[in-house]
Design a protein around this nucleic acid. Structure first.
Length: 541
RNA sequence: GGCCCUAUCGUCUAGUGGUUAGGACGCCACGCUUUCAAUGUGGCAACGUGGGUUCGAUUCCCACUAGGGCCGCCA
Protein backbone atom coordinates (compact mmCIF):
# COMPACT_ATOMS: atom_id res chain seq x y z
CA UNK A 1 0.00 0.00 0.00
CA UNK A 2 1.11 3.52 -0.71
CA UNK A 3 2.30 4.81 2.65
CA UNK A 4 0.93 8.24 1.91
CA UNK A 5 -2.61 6.92 1.76
CA UNK A 6 -2.61 5.52 5.26
CA UNK A 7 -1.00 8.74 6.31
CA UNK A 8 -4.05 10.75 5.33
CA UNK A 9 -6.15 9.15 8.01
CA UNK A 10 -3.72 10.07 10.77
CA UNK A 11 -4.41 12.76 13.28
CA UNK A 12 -2.07 15.16 14.96
CA UNK A 13 0.34 15.98 12.18
CA UNK A 14 3.35 18.02 13.29
CA UNK A 15 5.89 19.22 10.73
CA UNK A 16 8.89 21.45 11.05
CA UNK A 17 11.11 23.67 8.98
CA UNK A 18 14.63 23.60 10.37
CA UNK A 19 17.00 25.98 8.59
CA UNK A 20 20.43 26.87 9.85
CA UNK A 21 21.25 30.58 10.07
CA UNK A 22 24.47 30.43 8.11
CA UNK A 23 23.33 32.64 5.25
CA UNK A 24 20.29 34.47 3.99
CA UNK A 25 17.35 32.20 3.36
CA UNK A 26 17.44 30.96 -0.23
CA UNK A 27 14.47 30.31 -2.47
CA UNK A 28 15.07 26.57 -2.33
CA UNK A 29 14.71 26.66 1.44
CA UNK A 30 11.60 28.74 1.11
CA UNK A 31 10.06 26.07 -1.09
CA UNK A 32 10.88 23.44 1.51
CA UNK A 33 9.30 25.62 4.19
CA UNK A 34 6.25 26.15 2.00
CA UNK A 35 5.70 22.44 1.38
CA UNK A 36 6.16 21.58 5.07
CA UNK A 37 3.78 24.39 5.98
CA UNK A 38 1.16 23.33 3.44
CA UNK A 39 1.31 19.71 4.49
CA UNK A 40 0.70 20.72 8.11
CA UNK A 41 -2.16 23.08 7.23
CA UNK A 42 -3.79 20.63 4.88
CA UNK A 43 -3.88 18.08 7.68
CA UNK A 44 -4.94 20.55 10.36
CA UNK A 45 -1.53 19.99 11.84
CA UNK A 46 1.09 22.11 13.53
CA UNK A 47 3.92 23.85 11.71
CA UNK A 48 7.07 24.38 13.74
CA UNK A 49 10.07 26.57 13.06
CA UNK A 50 13.35 25.43 14.52
CA UNK A 51 16.66 27.23 14.15
CA UNK A 52 19.57 24.82 13.77
CA UNK A 53 22.42 26.95 14.99
CA UNK A 54 24.74 24.37 16.50
CA UNK A 55 27.56 25.50 14.23
CA UNK A 56 28.90 28.37 16.30
CA UNK A 57 31.39 29.51 13.69
CA UNK A 58 28.96 29.95 10.85
CA UNK A 59 25.69 30.91 12.54
CA UNK A 60 24.92 34.62 12.68
CA UNK A 61 22.09 36.52 14.37
CA UNK A 62 21.30 38.54 11.25
CA UNK A 63 20.65 35.36 9.32
CA UNK A 64 18.46 34.13 12.15
CA UNK A 65 16.45 37.36 11.85
CA UNK A 66 16.32 37.04 8.09
CA UNK A 67 14.68 33.62 8.40
CA UNK A 68 11.94 34.95 10.68
CA UNK A 69 11.36 38.06 8.60
CA UNK A 70 11.23 36.25 5.29
CA UNK A 71 8.81 33.58 6.49
CA UNK A 72 6.53 36.19 8.00
CA UNK A 73 6.62 38.30 4.87
CA UNK A 74 5.53 35.27 2.89
CA UNK A 75 2.76 34.52 5.34
CA UNK A 76 4.25 31.18 6.36
CA UNK A 77 3.44 31.68 10.02
CA UNK A 78 4.65 29.06 12.42
CA UNK A 79 2.58 27.73 15.30
CA UNK A 80 5.60 27.00 17.44
CA UNK A 81 9.10 28.34 17.23
CA UNK A 82 11.14 31.44 18.02
CA UNK A 83 8.88 34.16 19.43
CA UNK A 84 5.93 31.74 19.41
CA UNK A 85 6.20 29.46 22.39
CA UNK A 86 4.58 26.10 22.00
CA UNK A 87 5.81 24.60 25.24
CA UNK A 88 8.23 22.20 23.57
CA UNK A 89 11.08 24.64 23.16
CA UNK A 90 13.59 26.11 23.17
CA UNK A 91 13.36 26.28 19.40
CA UNK A 92 16.95 27.33 18.85
CA UNK A 93 19.40 24.50 19.20
CA UNK A 94 22.04 26.74 20.74
CA UNK A 95 19.67 27.16 23.68
CA UNK A 96 19.37 23.47 24.48
CA UNK A 97 22.93 22.29 24.70
CA UNK A 98 22.28 20.92 28.18
CA UNK A 99 19.57 18.64 26.86
CA UNK A 100 21.79 17.22 24.14
CA UNK A 101 24.51 16.65 26.71
CA UNK A 102 22.21 14.51 28.84
CA UNK A 103 21.34 12.29 25.89
CA UNK A 104 24.99 12.04 24.92
CA UNK A 105 25.89 10.95 28.46
CA UNK A 106 23.18 8.36 28.31
CA UNK A 107 24.40 6.90 25.03
CA UNK A 108 27.95 6.88 26.32
CA UNK A 109 26.86 5.25 29.57
CA UNK A 110 24.94 2.56 27.71
CA UNK A 111 27.99 1.94 25.52
CA UNK A 112 25.94 2.84 22.45
CA UNK A 113 28.33 5.65 21.67
CA UNK A 114 32.06 6.05 22.23
CA UNK A 115 34.81 8.61 22.31
CA UNK A 116 37.04 8.67 19.27
CA UNK A 117 40.55 10.06 19.68
CA UNK A 118 41.69 9.58 16.10
CA UNK A 119 43.46 12.70 14.81
CA UNK A 120 41.74 14.45 11.93
CA UNK A 121 44.72 14.03 9.62
CA UNK A 122 44.69 10.30 10.17
CA UNK A 123 40.99 10.08 9.36
CA UNK A 124 41.51 12.17 6.27
CA UNK A 125 44.28 9.91 5.03
CA UNK A 126 42.13 6.87 5.59
CA UNK A 127 39.22 8.52 3.82
CA UNK A 128 41.36 9.23 0.77
CA UNK A 129 42.57 5.66 0.75
CA UNK A 130 39.04 4.27 0.87
CA UNK A 131 37.97 6.60 -1.90
CA UNK A 132 40.91 5.51 -4.05
CA UNK A 133 39.96 1.87 -3.51
CA UNK A 134 36.43 2.63 -4.66
CA UNK A 135 35.04 1.82 -1.25
CA UNK A 136 32.55 3.58 0.92
CA UNK A 137 34.05 6.00 3.39
CA UNK A 138 33.54 4.32 6.74
CA UNK A 139 35.20 4.85 10.12
CA UNK A 140 37.84 2.22 10.87
CA UNK A 141 36.48 1.36 14.31
CA UNK A 142 39.82 1.97 15.95
CA UNK A 143 38.50 3.64 19.12
CA UNK A 144 35.25 1.72 19.18
CA UNK A 145 36.15 -0.63 22.01
CA UNK A 146 38.76 1.36 23.88
CA UNK A 147 38.83 0.22 27.52
CA UNK A 148 37.62 2.77 30.06
CA UNK A 149 41.12 3.16 31.44
CA UNK A 150 42.55 4.07 28.06
CA UNK A 151 39.81 6.63 27.54
CA UNK A 152 40.54 8.29 30.88
CA UNK A 153 44.21 8.16 30.13
CA UNK A 154 43.73 9.93 26.81
CA UNK A 155 41.70 12.65 28.47
CA UNK A 156 44.35 13.08 31.17
CA UNK A 157 46.91 13.59 28.49
CA UNK A 158 44.68 16.29 26.99
CA UNK A 159 43.77 14.41 23.85
CA UNK A 160 40.85 15.77 21.85
CA UNK A 161 37.90 13.46 21.27
CA UNK A 162 34.67 13.41 19.31
CA UNK A 163 31.71 11.13 19.95
CA UNK A 164 30.55 8.47 17.52
CA UNK A 165 27.53 6.21 17.48
CA UNK A 166 28.28 2.53 17.73
CA UNK A 167 26.72 1.08 14.61
CA UNK A 168 26.07 -2.64 14.92
CA UNK A 169 25.82 -3.11 11.17
CA UNK A 170 22.64 -5.12 11.39
CA UNK A 171 20.06 -5.56 8.71
CA UNK A 172 19.16 -3.07 6.02
CA UNK A 173 17.62 0.19 7.06
CA UNK A 174 14.36 0.70 5.22
CA UNK A 175 11.99 3.63 5.21
CA UNK A 176 9.00 4.55 3.09
CA UNK A 177 9.43 8.03 1.77
CA UNK A 178 6.11 9.80 1.27
CA UNK A 179 7.28 11.13 -2.08
CA UNK A 180 9.81 8.59 -3.29
CA UNK A 181 8.52 5.32 -1.92
CA UNK A 182 10.69 2.67 -0.32
CA UNK A 183 14.36 3.48 0.13
CA UNK A 184 16.95 1.07 1.53
CA UNK A 185 20.43 1.56 2.95
CA UNK A 186 23.17 -0.82 4.02
CA UNK A 187 24.33 0.18 7.53
CA UNK A 188 27.73 -1.29 6.75
CA UNK A 189 28.29 1.57 4.37
CA UNK A 190 27.57 4.08 7.10
CA UNK A 191 29.73 2.79 9.95
CA UNK A 192 30.31 4.51 13.27
CA UNK A 193 29.38 8.04 12.29
CA UNK A 194 30.10 11.15 14.35
CA UNK A 195 27.31 12.61 16.45
CA UNK A 196 29.09 15.29 18.49
CA UNK A 197 32.34 17.18 18.66
CA UNK A 198 32.05 17.10 22.43
CA UNK A 199 29.42 16.89 25.16
CA UNK A 200 28.39 20.48 24.51
CA UNK A 201 28.89 20.42 20.78
CA UNK A 202 26.31 18.19 19.16
CA UNK A 203 26.45 17.61 15.41
CA UNK A 204 23.55 17.94 13.01
CA UNK A 205 22.25 14.38 12.87
CA UNK A 206 22.22 14.08 16.63
CA UNK A 207 20.57 17.37 17.56
CA UNK A 208 18.09 16.88 14.76
CA UNK A 209 16.97 13.51 16.11
CA UNK A 210 16.68 14.80 19.68
CA UNK A 211 14.65 17.80 18.55
CA UNK A 212 12.35 15.90 16.25
CA UNK A 213 11.59 13.70 19.25
CA UNK A 214 11.27 16.54 21.78
CA UNK A 215 9.02 18.49 19.46
CA UNK A 216 6.94 15.40 18.69
CA UNK A 217 7.49 15.74 14.97
CA UNK A 218 5.39 13.24 13.03
CA UNK A 219 6.39 14.20 9.48
CA UNK A 220 9.75 15.43 8.32
CA UNK A 221 9.45 17.33 5.04
CA UNK A 222 12.90 18.39 3.83
CA UNK A 223 15.21 18.56 0.84
CA UNK A 224 16.57 15.62 -1.10
CA UNK A 225 20.04 16.42 0.20
CA UNK A 226 18.96 14.82 3.48
CA UNK A 227 18.04 11.43 2.06
CA UNK A 228 21.40 9.99 3.01
CA UNK A 229 21.15 11.43 6.53
CA UNK A 230 17.92 9.58 7.11
CA UNK A 231 19.42 6.13 7.83
CA UNK A 232 21.82 7.73 10.32
CA UNK A 233 18.96 9.42 12.07
CA UNK A 234 16.98 6.19 12.14
CA UNK A 235 19.95 4.42 13.73
CA UNK A 236 20.10 7.15 16.35
CA UNK A 237 16.37 6.88 17.01
CA UNK A 238 16.74 3.17 17.58
CA UNK A 239 19.67 3.65 19.95
CA UNK A 240 17.66 6.15 21.95
CA UNK A 241 14.36 4.31 21.77
CA UNK A 242 12.62 7.09 19.86
CA UNK A 243 9.89 6.51 17.27
CA UNK A 244 10.79 7.19 13.63
CA UNK A 245 8.73 9.94 12.01
CA UNK A 246 7.56 9.72 8.41
CA UNK A 247 9.85 11.28 5.86
CA UNK A 248 9.14 13.18 2.67
CA UNK A 249 12.14 14.26 0.64
CA UNK A 250 11.61 17.05 -1.86
CA UNK A 251 13.64 17.29 -5.05
CA UNK A 252 15.95 20.23 -5.47
CA UNK A 253 15.53 23.42 -7.43
CA UNK A 254 17.99 23.45 -10.31
CA UNK A 255 19.84 26.19 -12.18
CA UNK A 256 18.98 26.57 -15.90
CA UNK A 257 21.79 24.14 -16.83
CA UNK A 258 20.25 21.60 -14.44
CA UNK A 259 23.09 21.89 -11.97
CA UNK A 260 22.47 22.51 -8.31
CA UNK A 261 21.54 26.06 -7.45
CA UNK A 262 24.52 27.53 -5.63
CA UNK A 263 25.75 30.92 -4.52
CA UNK A 264 27.78 31.32 -7.69
CA UNK A 265 25.08 29.79 -9.74
CA UNK A 266 21.68 31.37 -9.59
CA UNK A 267 20.88 30.92 -5.92
CA UNK A 268 19.43 34.20 -4.78
CA UNK A 269 18.35 35.01 -1.24
CA UNK A 270 14.60 35.40 -0.91
CA UNK A 271 15.10 38.88 0.52
CA UNK A 272 16.52 40.02 -2.80
CA UNK A 273 13.37 39.03 -4.58
CA UNK A 274 11.50 41.05 -2.03
CA UNK A 275 13.74 44.04 -2.65
CA UNK A 276 13.39 43.76 -6.39
CA UNK A 277 9.67 44.00 -5.98
CA UNK A 278 8.22 40.53 -6.15
CA UNK A 279 5.02 39.97 -4.23
CA UNK A 280 4.82 37.14 -1.71
CA UNK A 281 1.72 35.85 -3.49
CA UNK A 282 3.66 35.50 -6.74
CA UNK A 283 6.62 33.84 -5.11
CA UNK A 284 4.42 31.32 -3.32
CA UNK A 285 2.40 30.57 -6.42
CA UNK A 286 5.57 30.14 -8.45
CA UNK A 287 7.35 28.00 -5.89
CA UNK A 288 4.48 25.63 -5.27
CA UNK A 289 4.15 24.93 -8.98
CA UNK A 290 7.79 23.88 -9.00
CA UNK A 291 6.97 20.29 -8.19
CA UNK A 292 3.31 20.34 -7.35
CA UNK A 293 0.26 20.54 -9.59
CA UNK A 294 -3.44 19.99 -9.00
CA UNK A 295 -5.50 17.52 -10.99
CA UNK A 296 -6.96 20.16 -13.25
CA UNK A 297 -5.30 22.88 -15.27
CA UNK A 298 -5.52 25.85 -12.93
CA UNK A 299 -2.31 27.77 -12.44
CA UNK A 300 -3.21 30.52 -10.00
CA UNK A 301 -3.26 29.69 -6.30
CA UNK A 302 -3.35 31.71 -3.14
CA UNK A 303 -1.80 30.41 0.04
CA UNK A 304 -5.30 29.93 1.45
CA UNK A 305 -6.30 27.76 -1.53
CA UNK A 306 -3.17 25.75 -1.25
CA UNK A 307 -3.78 25.05 2.40
CA UNK A 308 -6.88 23.20 1.27
CA UNK A 309 -5.64 21.64 -1.94
CA UNK A 310 -2.03 20.70 -1.38
CA UNK A 311 -1.04 17.07 -1.21
CA UNK A 312 2.30 15.32 -1.07
CA UNK A 313 0.92 12.61 -3.35
CA UNK A 314 1.06 15.02 -6.25
CA UNK A 315 4.59 16.22 -5.66
CA UNK A 316 7.04 15.61 -8.46
CA UNK A 317 10.02 13.36 -7.79
CA UNK A 318 12.42 15.01 -10.21
CA UNK A 319 14.24 18.29 -9.78
CA UNK A 320 12.77 21.43 -11.30
CA UNK A 321 14.63 24.15 -13.13
CA UNK A 322 14.08 27.62 -11.82
CA UNK A 323 12.52 29.66 -14.62
CA UNK A 324 12.53 33.35 -13.79
CA UNK A 325 10.40 34.36 -16.77
CA UNK A 326 7.55 32.41 -15.35
CA UNK A 327 8.01 34.09 -11.98
CA UNK A 328 7.93 37.45 -13.75
CA UNK A 329 4.73 36.55 -15.51
CA UNK A 330 3.07 35.52 -12.26
CA UNK A 331 4.32 38.63 -10.50
CA UNK A 332 2.96 40.79 -13.31
CA UNK A 333 -0.34 39.00 -12.98
CA UNK A 334 -0.59 39.67 -9.25
CA UNK A 335 0.57 43.26 -9.73
CA UNK A 336 -2.19 43.86 -12.28
CA UNK A 337 -4.74 42.54 -9.83
CA UNK A 338 -3.81 44.96 -7.07
CA UNK A 339 -5.92 48.05 -6.45
CA UNK A 340 -4.14 51.17 -7.75
CA UNK A 341 -3.88 52.46 -4.20
CA UNK A 342 -2.32 49.34 -2.88
CA UNK A 343 0.10 49.20 -5.80
CA UNK A 344 1.01 52.82 -5.14
CA UNK A 345 1.83 52.07 -1.53
CA UNK A 346 4.19 49.40 -2.68
CA UNK A 347 5.83 51.65 -5.27
CA UNK A 348 6.42 54.68 -3.07
CA UNK A 349 9.44 53.35 -1.18
CA UNK A 350 11.22 52.76 -4.47
CA UNK A 351 10.52 56.30 -5.71
CA UNK A 352 11.61 57.77 -2.40
CA UNK A 353 14.73 55.65 -2.31
CA UNK A 354 15.61 56.96 -5.74
CA UNK A 355 15.27 60.50 -4.45
CA UNK A 356 12.38 61.56 -6.64
CA UNK A 357 10.02 61.97 -3.77
CA UNK A 358 10.19 62.88 -0.14
CA UNK A 359 7.64 62.62 2.55
CA UNK A 360 6.85 66.29 3.09
CA UNK A 361 7.63 67.89 6.43
CA UNK A 362 8.80 64.65 7.87
CA UNK A 363 12.00 62.72 7.95
CA UNK A 364 12.36 59.80 5.62
CA UNK A 365 12.55 56.43 7.38
CA UNK A 366 16.18 55.39 7.57
CA UNK A 367 15.66 51.99 6.04
CA UNK A 368 13.21 51.86 3.18
CA UNK A 369 13.96 48.48 1.74
CA UNK A 370 12.79 45.86 2.49
CA UNK A 371 9.52 47.65 2.58
CA UNK A 372 8.22 49.04 5.85
CA UNK A 373 4.57 48.80 6.76
CA UNK A 374 2.42 50.48 4.19
CA UNK A 375 -0.49 51.80 6.21
CA UNK A 376 0.67 55.37 6.61
CA UNK A 377 1.43 56.15 2.99
CA UNK A 378 -2.02 57.36 2.05
CA UNK A 379 -2.24 60.25 4.48
CA UNK A 380 1.12 61.76 3.66
CA UNK A 381 1.98 64.58 1.31
CA UNK A 382 5.03 64.32 -0.86
CA UNK A 383 7.62 66.69 -2.21
CA UNK A 384 8.70 66.07 -5.77
CA UNK A 385 12.46 66.02 -6.41
CA UNK A 386 14.11 69.38 -7.08
CA UNK A 387 10.95 71.24 -7.91
CA UNK A 388 9.72 70.68 -4.36
CA UNK A 389 6.15 70.79 -5.57
CA UNK A 390 3.93 69.14 -3.02
CA UNK A 391 1.58 66.41 -4.22
CA UNK A 392 -0.73 64.06 -2.44
CA UNK A 393 -1.09 60.31 -2.51
CA UNK A 394 -3.93 60.32 -5.01
CA UNK A 395 -1.89 62.21 -7.53
CA UNK A 396 0.91 59.67 -7.25
CA UNK A 397 -1.63 56.90 -7.60
CA UNK A 398 -2.67 58.38 -10.95
CA UNK A 399 0.89 58.22 -12.22
CA UNK A 400 1.40 54.68 -11.06
CA UNK A 401 -1.93 53.49 -12.41
CA UNK A 402 -0.64 54.31 -15.90
CA UNK A 403 2.00 51.64 -15.51
CA UNK A 404 0.14 48.98 -13.64
CA UNK A 405 -0.22 46.64 -16.60
CA UNK A 406 3.37 47.17 -17.69
CA UNK A 407 5.10 46.16 -14.46
CA UNK A 408 6.75 42.84 -13.89
CA UNK A 409 8.45 43.88 -10.67
CA UNK A 410 7.72 46.87 -8.48
CA UNK A 411 11.25 48.22 -8.77
CA UNK A 412 10.65 48.88 -12.47
CA UNK A 413 8.33 51.74 -11.59
CA UNK A 414 11.40 53.91 -11.00
CA UNK A 415 12.59 53.89 -14.62
CA UNK A 416 9.12 53.85 -16.08
CA UNK A 417 7.85 57.00 -14.39
CA UNK A 418 11.01 59.07 -13.94
CA UNK A 419 9.85 61.77 -16.37
CA UNK A 420 6.94 62.69 -14.13
CA UNK A 421 9.33 63.66 -11.37
CA UNK A 422 12.06 65.38 -13.31
CA UNK A 423 11.99 69.09 -14.03
CA UNK A 424 13.67 68.74 -17.34
CA UNK A 425 13.77 65.53 -19.32
CA UNK A 426 16.73 64.58 -21.43
CA UNK A 427 16.45 62.65 -24.66
CA UNK A 428 17.87 62.54 -28.16
CA UNK A 429 15.98 64.71 -30.66
CA UNK A 430 16.11 61.79 -33.09
CA UNK A 431 13.60 60.05 -30.86
CA UNK A 432 11.00 62.59 -31.93
CA UNK A 433 11.03 61.29 -35.47
CA UNK A 434 8.14 59.10 -36.54
CA UNK A 435 9.08 56.95 -39.54
CA UNK A 436 10.51 59.19 -42.28
CA UNK A 437 9.28 62.54 -40.97
CA UNK A 438 11.41 65.58 -41.74
CA UNK A 439 12.51 67.90 -38.93
CA UNK A 440 10.19 70.54 -40.31
CA UNK A 441 7.24 68.14 -40.18
CA UNK A 442 8.02 67.19 -36.61
CA UNK A 443 8.02 70.81 -35.58
CA UNK A 444 4.77 71.45 -37.38
CA UNK A 445 3.25 68.43 -35.73
CA UNK A 446 4.33 69.61 -32.29
CA UNK A 447 3.00 73.08 -32.99
CA UNK A 448 -0.31 71.65 -34.05
CA UNK A 449 -0.58 69.68 -30.84
CA UNK A 450 0.51 72.66 -28.81
CA UNK A 451 -2.08 74.90 -30.39
CA UNK A 452 -4.89 72.43 -29.92
CA UNK A 453 -3.94 71.71 -26.31
CA UNK A 454 -3.51 75.38 -25.44
CA UNK A 455 -7.11 75.93 -26.36
CA UNK A 456 -8.44 73.32 -23.96
CA UNK A 457 -10.10 74.91 -20.94
CA UNK A 458 -8.53 73.93 -17.65
CA UNK A 459 -11.71 72.25 -16.46
CA UNK A 460 -11.75 70.13 -19.61
CA UNK A 461 -8.21 68.87 -19.07
CA UNK A 462 -9.19 65.23 -18.86
CA UNK A 463 -8.18 62.22 -20.81
CA UNK A 464 -11.42 61.72 -22.82
CA UNK A 465 -11.41 65.35 -23.92
CA UNK A 466 -7.72 65.36 -24.70
CA UNK A 467 -8.20 62.26 -26.74
CA UNK A 468 -11.04 63.79 -28.73
CA UNK A 469 -9.11 66.97 -29.37
CA UNK A 470 -5.86 65.31 -30.37
CA UNK A 471 -7.41 62.58 -32.47
CA UNK A 472 -9.39 65.26 -34.25
CA UNK A 473 -6.15 66.95 -35.26
CA UNK A 474 -4.50 63.62 -36.04
CA UNK A 475 -7.28 62.59 -38.41
CA UNK A 476 -6.64 65.66 -40.48
CA UNK A 477 -2.99 64.75 -40.88
CA UNK A 478 -3.93 61.23 -41.91
CA UNK A 479 -1.26 59.16 -40.19
CA UNK A 480 -2.04 59.38 -36.49
CA UNK A 481 1.53 58.52 -35.65
CA UNK A 482 2.73 61.78 -37.16
CA UNK A 483 0.98 63.67 -34.42
CA UNK A 484 0.97 61.24 -31.54
CA UNK A 485 4.49 59.85 -31.64
CA UNK A 486 6.38 63.18 -31.49
CA UNK A 487 3.95 64.44 -28.87
CA UNK A 488 4.35 61.37 -26.69
CA UNK A 489 8.13 61.55 -26.93
CA UNK A 490 8.08 65.27 -26.16
CA UNK A 491 6.16 64.55 -22.98
CA UNK A 492 7.94 61.41 -21.84
CA UNK A 493 11.35 61.46 -23.50
CA UNK A 494 10.95 57.73 -24.02
CA UNK A 495 10.64 55.30 -26.86
CA UNK A 496 7.97 53.41 -24.95
CA UNK A 497 5.49 54.82 -22.49
CA UNK A 498 1.83 55.29 -21.69
CA UNK A 499 -0.26 57.16 -24.26
CA UNK A 500 0.14 60.94 -24.72
CA UNK A 501 -3.47 61.44 -23.57
CA UNK A 502 -2.81 59.76 -20.26
CA UNK A 503 0.52 61.45 -19.71
CA UNK A 504 -0.83 64.89 -20.58
CA UNK A 505 -3.74 64.46 -18.22
CA UNK A 506 -1.51 63.64 -15.28
CA UNK A 507 1.18 66.15 -16.19
CA UNK A 508 -1.32 69.00 -16.33
CA UNK A 509 -1.79 71.66 -18.97
CA UNK A 510 1.07 74.03 -18.22
CA UNK A 511 3.69 71.35 -17.88
CA UNK A 512 2.45 69.64 -21.01
CA UNK A 513 2.71 72.83 -23.05
CA UNK A 514 6.09 73.56 -21.55
CA UNK A 515 7.46 70.16 -22.60
CA UNK A 516 6.22 70.61 -26.14
CA UNK A 517 8.03 73.94 -26.31
CA UNK A 518 11.16 72.37 -24.94
CA UNK A 519 11.04 69.65 -27.55
CA UNK A 520 10.82 72.25 -30.27
CA UNK A 521 13.82 74.07 -28.85
CA UNK A 522 15.72 70.79 -28.72
CA UNK A 523 14.93 70.20 -32.36
CA UNK A 524 16.14 73.68 -33.22
CA UNK A 525 19.40 73.19 -31.38
CA UNK A 526 19.93 69.91 -33.10
CA UNK A 527 19.62 71.56 -36.46
CA UNK A 528 22.30 74.00 -35.44
CA UNK A 529 24.64 71.21 -34.48
CA UNK A 530 24.07 69.34 -37.70
CA UNK A 531 24.74 72.48 -39.67
CA UNK A 532 27.98 73.13 -37.86
CA UNK A 533 29.10 69.61 -38.65
CA UNK A 534 28.63 70.34 -42.31
CA UNK A 535 25.19 68.91 -42.96
CA UNK A 536 25.60 66.11 -40.50
CA UNK A 537 25.98 62.86 -42.24
CA UNK A 538 28.72 61.73 -44.53
CA UNK A 539 26.99 60.17 -47.52
CA UNK A 540 30.00 58.58 -49.11
CA UNK A 541 30.07 55.47 -46.98
C1' G B 1 34.82 5.63 -7.36
C1' G B 2 30.67 3.86 -3.79
C1' C B 3 25.56 4.41 -2.15
C1' C B 4 20.77 6.64 -3.11
C1' C B 5 17.34 9.13 -6.36
C1' U B 6 15.28 10.87 -11.08
C1' A B 7 13.86 10.93 -16.59
C1' U B 8 6.84 13.86 -21.28
C1' C B 9 7.67 20.30 -25.64
C1' G B 10 13.42 25.11 -24.38
C1' U B 11 11.14 25.50 -19.07
C1' C B 12 7.13 24.10 -15.24
C1' U B 13 3.86 20.16 -15.88
C1' A B 14 -1.18 16.96 -17.05
C1' G B 15 -2.04 12.20 -18.73
C1' U B 16 -3.04 6.93 -20.64
C1' G B 17 -1.79 -0.47 -21.90
C1' G B 18 -5.05 1.73 -27.72
C1' U B 19 -5.39 9.85 -26.91
C1' U B 20 -5.20 14.37 -32.87
C1' A B 21 -0.21 13.24 -25.95
C1' G B 22 -3.55 18.43 -22.83
C1' G B 23 -2.32 23.21 -20.17
C1' A B 24 1.03 27.27 -18.63
C1' C B 25 5.63 30.37 -19.31
C1' G B 26 8.67 31.69 -23.29
C1' C B 27 8.95 32.16 -28.69
C1' C B 28 6.60 33.32 -33.70
C1' A B 29 2.38 35.35 -36.63
C1' C B 30 -2.07 38.07 -36.89
C1' G B 31 -5.99 41.49 -34.58
C1' C B 32 -6.47 45.94 -31.46
C1' U B 33 -2.88 50.11 -31.31
C1' U B 34 1.38 56.42 -32.19
C1' U B 35 5.02 53.30 -28.93
C1' C B 36 5.59 49.77 -25.04
C1' A B 37 2.44 46.87 -22.39
C1' A B 38 -2.17 44.46 -21.42
C1' U B 39 -5.67 41.64 -24.21
C1' G B 40 -7.88 38.27 -28.26
C1' U B 41 -6.93 34.49 -32.13
C1' G B 42 -3.68 31.09 -34.35
C1' G B 43 1.14 28.57 -34.76
C1' C B 44 6.01 26.06 -33.67
C1' A B 45 7.50 22.57 -29.98
C1' A B 46 8.00 16.60 -26.06
C1' C B 47 7.21 10.87 -24.37
C1' G B 48 16.32 9.85 -23.75
C1' U B 49 18.35 4.83 -26.10
C1' G B 50 18.16 -0.50 -26.46
C1' G B 51 15.91 -4.88 -25.01
C1' G B 52 11.79 -7.54 -23.11
C1' U B 53 6.14 -8.47 -21.45
C1' U B 54 1.81 -7.69 -24.62
C1' C B 55 -2.51 -8.17 -30.15
C1' G B 56 -0.65 -3.23 -28.90
C1' A B 57 3.83 0.35 -25.19
C1' U B 58 5.04 7.12 -23.83
C1' U B 59 2.61 4.16 -19.90
C1' C B 60 4.76 -2.27 -16.92
C1' C B 61 9.92 -4.84 -16.27
C1' C B 62 15.36 -4.83 -17.23
C1' A B 63 19.75 -2.68 -19.00
C1' C B 64 22.15 1.49 -20.80
C1' U B 65 22.65 6.68 -21.12
C1' A B 66 22.07 11.32 -19.02
C1' G B 67 21.15 14.37 -14.79
C1' G B 68 20.86 15.18 -9.49
C1' G B 69 21.97 14.17 -4.17
C1' C B 70 25.24 12.30 -0.39
C1' C B 71 29.93 10.14 0.95
C1' G B 72 32.67 16.45 7.08
C1' C B 73 34.89 17.01 13.86
C1' C B 74 28.79 21.70 8.02
C1' A B 75 23.66 21.66 8.09
Amino acid sequence: MDPSIEDKTEKGVRTRFAPSPTGFLQLGNVRTALFAYLFARKNQGVFILRIEDTDKERSRPEYDQDILETLRWLGLNWDEGPEVDGGLGPYRQSEKLGIYEKYLQRLLGEKKAFYCFCPEEELETFRQYQLSQGNAVVYSGKCRDLPEGAVQDNFRRGKKAIIRLKNNLGEKIVFDDLIRGRIEFDPGLIGDFSIAKGLKEPLYNFSCVIDDFDMKITHVVRGEDHVSNTPKQILLQRALGFPTPKYAHLSMILAPDRSKLSKRHGAVPAREYRQRGYLPEALINFLVLLGWHPEDEREIFSLKNLEKEFSLERVQKSGAVFNEQRLDWLNGFYLRNLSPQSLTEKCLPYLIEKGWLRVAAQSVPAQLLPLPTEEKWREQEYEVGESRVVVNFDYLARIIALYQQRLKKISEIVELTDFFFQNKIVFSPELLRWKEMKDREIKESLSLAEKALAKVKPEDWQKPNLETVLLGVAEKIGDRGKLLWPLRVALSGKEASASPFEIAEVLGQSKTLQRIKEAKVLLEKNKGILASLGRGKNPSF
